[in-house]
């Protein structure tokens, strides 16, 4: 039973990371109908920047905050500079531009920082925390906490601020939004900025576990796809919940189902995608697309 609770909490911690990245994907998808295949690499790049700042002697949380700011501006700039010229192009064209972005970020990171894995610090103590009779990894609990704080702040931002409201409006109905005086293009850019920020948090929280290297987000992005698919690409809350579910399932299956172990974990994620897609094509919490003739 103790092991079970431990595994669930640890699953929630990684699941929160998948969920964050899934949320970043969904935010951009809802606003622009584009799956940002470069989301993972953007997160990876931000994490390298954090590593540079920490190595330069900044205290962890200062570096953390600075990275979030840089990631936000970077995401915003990428939308304005790279994505904007193809805004009205066919979706596949935008997909290819995202793939271009992916290989650029990956390659530049490898060039600047090399492909050798680097350890990345965790801001939380190494000693496990004991609650009752059960020991929890401090980083697991901390990462889960940080993720929840970020998600909660986003929720408050979108729900209660005028800018958040304008962003939701711009994503839903760009024409009407313009008629309300909303600068839709900038709303999309801010959306990219926020998505990059959320991704940066995910990167910094997962790096102490998987180590820092240019390909570290590849696998995690796939889990994020699985999470977003599970929750439905049209539901931000669903994407986060999807992430938590995928994280927990992954951990429990890895612990209790012997023949799967760690090597086939990825296959589990894929199986989740396929089963959900075939049973419920719009995801658990998604809306089915409405078709017009």
């Amino acid at each position: 039973m103790d092991i079970f609770v431990q595994q669930v909490v640890s699953g929630l911690a990684t699941g929160g990371i998948y969920g964050s990245l899934a949320l970043a994907l969904v935010m951009i998808y809802q606003a622009t109908d584009v799956v940002n295949y470069a989301q993972g690499e953007m997160a990876m790049f931000s994490t390298y920047l954090a590593w540079t700042l920490i190595n330069a002697g900044l205290p962890y949380w200062v570096a953390f905050a600075a990275t979030l700011a840089i990631a936000f501006v970077g995401g915003l700039a990428i939308e304005r500079v790279v994505i904007r010229p193809v805004e009205n192009a066919p979706v596949l064209t935008i997909v290819i531009v995202c793939i271009g972005l992916l290989v650029i970020l990956n390659s530049v990171a490898g060039w600047v920082y090399s492909y050798i894995q680097k350890p990345f610090p965790s801001p939380f103590p190494e000693k496990p925390i004991r609650i009752g009779n059960v020991f929890f990894g401090a980083h697991d609990l901390g990462a889960l906490g940080v993720t929840l704080v970020v998600l909660l702040s986003l929720y408050v931002f979108f729900r209660y601020t005028t800018l958040g409201l304008a962003m939701r409006a711009a994503a839903q109905n760009p024409v009407s939004s313009r008629l309300c005086g909303i600068r839709v293009g900038w709303m999309l850019a801010v959306g990219w900025g926020l998505a990059a920020l959320v991704g940066a948090v995910a990167g910094m929280m997962v790096a102490p576990v998987v180590f820092l290297d240019p390909n570290m987000m590849g696998g995690i992005l796939i889990y994020a796809f699985a999470s977003a698919t599970l929750g439905g690409f049209t539901s931000p809350g669903g994407a986060v919940l999807g992430g938590l579910i995928v994280g927990v399932i992954e951990n429990l299956v890895g612990t209790y189902v012997r023949f799967i172990g760690t090597e086939l974990k990825l296959t589990v994620a894929l199986a989740v995608i396929l089963v959900v897609l075939i049973v419920k094509p719009s995801g658990l919490f998604g809306r089915a697309a409405v078709h017009r003739v």
Partner: peptide
Amino acid sequence: KAAPWAIYGIFLITFMYAMPR
């Protein structure tokens, strides 16, 4: 030689700007 994929990515993106179709 150092970052060939970065060059490839730049090719891809410029190509899509010049010829979105």
